[in-house]
Every structure is written in structure tokens, then in C-alpha cells.
Design a protein around this nucleic acid. Structure first.
Lengths: 329, 329
DNA sequence: GGCTACCATCGAATCGATTCGATCGAAACG
DNA sequence: CGTTTCGATCGAATCGATTCGATGGTAGCC
């Protein structure tokens, strides 16, 4: 048997393996991919040839080019530190990564900038809540990369996964109204689709709720706004927040000022995330995080396959905890 | 000018652009990559040809194959929900992603399993603290993928980024000893390199510190262990924890049992992460998270370039807060 | 004017697989 | 026994760029 002189430094390719096993390149490929049947004997020879050559399997880059897929889905989350500071991001991402992993796909973190848009991504998930423009959007759309937007702005060409913000907000508002509250305040997020929907739901019940202020879902920021609000006299008996972190901040700040929750002030959150460091179970609107993540990932998978995908709106559930109570007469 | 009949559905390639611009394929490539000079006139013609054809730039998959790089670095963090529940993970990852993004590289989240090991990764960062084996390790090493291990097990072929656990632990122990403490307890992490080092540091000062128990850096888990420990009578005057989250749990549980921190019990943490929901500044060992992340990413970059990289051990700083005090006589 | 340098451009090789269609035997069938 | 069918294998085309070495023309220099 004769062949080219082997350069010891070069890593072996499938062609080397095929030659060593005495089969054609295509057969060797089939032995690894299993895309068409190969006799047991042949597969054995190919694999053992691979073993003795130190071949570690088909080069993923080559496979990617040929198949036109990278096996990677991008997820735009903004700056990591802020994206993940919100505990609501985790359980959802967890579900996303789980579904993708089951399909052998990887999840790539994309920042807010357009830097990553030139990486080979099979699809992109956008869940930068509270931001309505995105530098990478045009580029991705032009390249035909499927886009799945979570609770996001209505961008043409994207698939939407959302929760029923409006109904959730209305339910928590109704709950407070049933408890006798008439004067409520609300802590809001940045102007965004979820915020607009939730505010609409709230105002179905309390048309003239007072706005304490806007801030992201951050304990310190929310606490500062609350502090400013509570330092003035007010007849408000309940505060409706847009996240459990905000709600916790209100609870902490109210207590710091000698108020009792819920006797002096009722507080409601949103999300339904664990807050073990708070010795009080929050009344909140529970999101189906896992389901949202699965729906998102599944939508991405279908769009990668080129299938049409319907938008999804998931229901939410009111969870009554110990942070809301009947208004004291 | 004649050419092949254009199939309207096919997305244009660089060859199409070159033909339309009347230049060679190689020149068109140069016009986009800028790897060699191209006259301004030519570049203009190429770019405008690209524009009118709807060409969105060189196909990343093809570029990747040719260059033998994917532009993606994997980071093994274990199950997302547990990995990111620890607030210490974020600032570091943030620095990692920042450095990589500046180089145009993406960051791909790898789970604990070996599923993702077959994706095309230029390097892999391993920071699953508390786990000493990894399903994907052999595969990655066989494929020659550079590996950077953060505070991790001593794996051959990997570059190590670490902090001076031992000295940090010794410093906090010395601090407590200086305050008069003689009987201390410790809450430990799973058996792992950082835990062994920190324990060694602690025992330099308190050779027979009591072990309360082992748990991950989770508030609820730590609180349960502490609860069990404090339910028995003890002469311990200080508790040394391996994370600020653990320390916060000890503070919360001690207070729940009517103890005052630090008067009745001193508590020390590790990491130096913000705990705004705790109305007490923890005494802790502050890690240089950002620097650790930058060192990690930089090491990965250098190893991708094929350069030799030295291991790194970063110093830590004792921060004295309000959770430790002089032992009451 | 002849020589060297250099810049822009081009043709061809290359990266490492997957996959389509063809071929070749052997088994199944009537 | 001739024909059909099926499974295994192979050759060749293909995915879409990057890059090496060569070429030709122009400018600089003595």
C-alpha cells in the first residue's frame, strides 16, 4: 500500500482515516454520521483506523460549512451583570439551554452591541426587556437569521413569545381592590412592551394609580425611589411593583421607615421568583418561566427548520402571599 | 457581459459579487477582509455590487472552515440555574465576555454534560467549582482545544487561573483571632481545590475549627445547616463561611434565633459580592472578580494563538465589615 | 534609461467534511 | 434461470470563503 508521506504534525482528516481503513471517503463519512447504513465490518475497520490515527471525529467546522448550520443559537441578554442580576432571567434561560442541549445545539451569549452579529448563528433569541432598539437587528434580518423575541418589541420577521402581562396586572389589581384598597401607587420599569401592558392592566382597576418612579429590576434602585416616595406624606395603602425584586425593595424600605407590611402598606410583586432572604412571602404574579423558556427554544428550533411558527402568549397566575392584606379602616 | 442564469432564490456568494463587480474572487475577498490593500476604486465597486445583489458579507461558516477557527469560546458553568444563582459568578463572567467581545469572539454556555463538546470551540473555560471530573474533558484534550480552568482541579494540559484562597482564609482567621475569638466554626463547600486551600488557611490559625457542614453557596441550604448547628448548645463565637451568601444565611438564621451579630456571633464571608438585602456589611475576603475574568479570557486568547501561558494566582483582600466584632468577655 | 520596489490584482490551491447519483453483487422472486 | 430489488460502497460535486505565489504595471532612484 502506498500513500503520501505522512507529516507527523498534521492532525488526521477523514480522508486519512478512509485511506487507512481501505474505504472511500464517503463510506468513512457514513460510518461516523450514520446517515446511511454501513456494514458492521466496515464501520469497525473505519473506527479502529480512526483510533490508531488519533482521529477525533469529523471536524465540526467542515461539517458546519457543508450543512449550512453552526449548531449555535445566540441569546441577546444585554450586559451580563445586569441581565442576570434579575433572578427572573435564570429559570427561563435554564429551560432554553436545556431544550437546545437536547438537540445538540449550543447557546451563545450576545451582548447588546453588534459585535457578535457576524458569528455564525442558526437563530437568535432576544430578551433584552426594556430596550426597543438593537444594533444587530438589521444585520440579522438581512442575513435571514431567525429571530425569536421574548416579551419584546414588535419587530417584523420575528416570532414572539410573551406572557399575559395585562391580565396578570389586572388580577393583582383586582385582588387589592377586593381587599379594600382604593389609593395605590406603582413602581414601573422602563418604557417597554411589558410595562405598557401591565400598566394598562393596572389602570383597568385603578385608573389613577400614582407612579412612584421608573427603574430596572434592581434592589438598590427601587429602594431609593421608594425612599423618596415614602419621605413625603401619602394616603397610598398599596404599592404594585413590576418585579419581585422591586417589591422586596419596597418591603425593606417601608420597614426601615417603621411601617408594617401588610398592615400599614400592602406590596405586590411580579415574576414569582424565590426571595429566601425576605422573611415574607410576596403576593405576586407568577410567570411560567420554564414553559416560557421551552416555548422560546422550541420556536427557535422550528424556525431553524424553516417551519412557520405561531406567536405564543402564556398565561400567568396570581399568587397571594403575606405581603398584601385588607386595608386598615 | 454574460454569466450563468441567476436562480433568484439562491443567496449570493462572494463569487457572484466578484463577477458583478468585474473583479476576481480573491480581490473581492480582500475588499471585505482588508487583509491586503485594495484600491479605493475597486473596493467601491465591490461594495456597491454587493449592495445591489443583497450580499450580506462573507459567510461566517466558510470563513471559519478556512481559518480553522469558530470565533467561539465555551464556558462550562454547570446547570445555569445553580451556576448563576451564586452572585460571584456574574462579575467574573462579565469581564470574560467583555474581553472576548472586544476580540470579536463569542461566549457559549456549556452545561455539565458532554453534549456541547462537539461544537466547534476555539477554547474552553472551566469554572464549575466544586466538581473534580468532567465528562467533556477527555474529548476536548484529544481534540487539542485549549482549556483554561478557573479555581479548578489540576488537569494536565490546562492553564490555571486562581486566587489566593489560602492566604485569604488565613487573613480572615487572623482577624478573628485578633478580636479574641478562640472557638470558631466553619461552613464549607463541597470538597474541591478552593475548599481544601481555604480550609488549610483557616486551620493555620484555628487548627480545630468545628465544621458545621458542607453545602453549595445557596442561602436556603446554608440556613438549614446553620439552623441545625445552632439548635444545639455551642461555645463557638464566630463562623467562617466560604461565600457571602453562606454568611448571609448564617446572619439571618442567627438573628432568627435571637442572637445579635456580631455581639453574640461573628460571621465572616468570602467573595465580596453586594448583598443589598442584608442590612449589615459583611466582613469578607474580596476577590478581584473583574481581574480574574480578564486574566481568564486573556489566557484563553493567548492559548488560541498557540502561545504558552503561565498560570495566574491573584491576590485577595480582607474587607472588615460590621459582621465581626470583639468577642464578648 | 535601466534597475529595483512596490502596489494592486489575479488564478489556483485549500480548508474537511457531506451527499447525490451511479455502480456492483447478492438475495428474493416468479 | 432471468429479472427485480435492495443494501453497501464509491466517485465526484459542493459548501463559500481565505491565502499563497505569480504577474503586470507604475513609481522612485541613481
Amino acid at each position: 500500500m502506498s500513500g503520501p508521506i505522512r507529516q507527523p504534525s498534521r492532525t488526521p482528516t477523514l480522508a486519512d482515516v478512509a485511506a487507512a481503513a481501505g474505504v472511500s471517503l464517503s463510506t468513512a463519512s457514513l460510518a461516523f454520521s450514520g446517515n446511511k447504513p454501513v456494514s458492521e465490518a466496515t464501520r469497525g475497520r473505519v473506527l479502529s483506523a480512526a483510533g490508531s490515527l488519533g482521529y477525533t471525529g469529523p471536524n465540526p467546522l467542515a461539517r458546519n460549512l457543508r450543512q449550512g448550520r453552526s449548531g449555535v443559537v445566540g441569546i441577546a441578554v444585554g450586559p451580563l451583570s445586569t441581565a442576570f442580576r434579575d433572578p427572573a432571567a435564570l429559570p427561563m434561560m435554564d429551560a432554553v439551554s436545556q431544550v437546545l442541549e437536547d438537540e445538540g445545539l449550543g447557546l451563545l451569549l450576545m451582548g447588546d452591541s453588534a459585535e457578535h452579529a457576524r458569528l455564525p448563528l442558526d437563530a437568535v433569541i432576544y430578551q433584552i426587556c426594556g430596550q426597543e432598539t438593537w444594533a444587530a437587528y438589521d444585520d440579522l434580518v438581512a442575513r435571514g437569521v431567525p429571530l425569536v423575541v421574548v416579551e419584546g418589541p414588535a419587530w417584523p420577521g420575528a416570532t414572539f413569545i410573551d406572557i399575559d402581562h395585562r391580565r396578570g396586572a389586572a388580577e393583582v389589581a383586582t385582588h387589592l381592590h377586593d381587599l379594600g384598597h382604593r389609593r395605590v401607587a406603582t413602581l414601573t420599569l422602563q418604557e417597554s412592551h411589558p410595562q405598557r401592558e401591565r400598566e394598562a392592566g393596572l389602570r383597568e382597576v385603578f385608573p389613577d394609580a400614582v407612579r412612584i418612579g421608573r427603574c430596572v429590576s434592581d434592589l438598590t434602585a427601587a429602594q431609593e425611589l421608594t425612599s423618596a416616595f415614602l419621605s413625603e406624606p401619602t394616603d397610598v395603602t398599596a404599592v404594585v411593583c413590576q418585579s419581585d425584586v422591586q417589591a422586596a425593595a419596597v418591603v425593606i424600605e417601608a420597614r426601615r421607615r417603621g411601617l408594617t407590611v401588610p398592615d400599614d402598606l400592602s406590596v405586590a410583586g411580579f415574576d414569582g421568583v424565590p426571595t429566601p432572604w425576605l422573611d415574607l412571602e410576596l403576593t405576586t404574579v407568577v410567570q411560567p418561566f420554564a414553559e416560557k423558556g421551552r416555548a422560546t427554544a422550541t420556536a427557535a428550533l422550528h424556525r431553524i427548520e424553516g417551519e412557520a411558527v405561531d406567536d405564543v402568549v402564556l398565561p400567568v397566575t396570581l399568587h397571594v402571599g403575606a405581603s398584601t392584606g385588607r386595608v386598615s379602616t
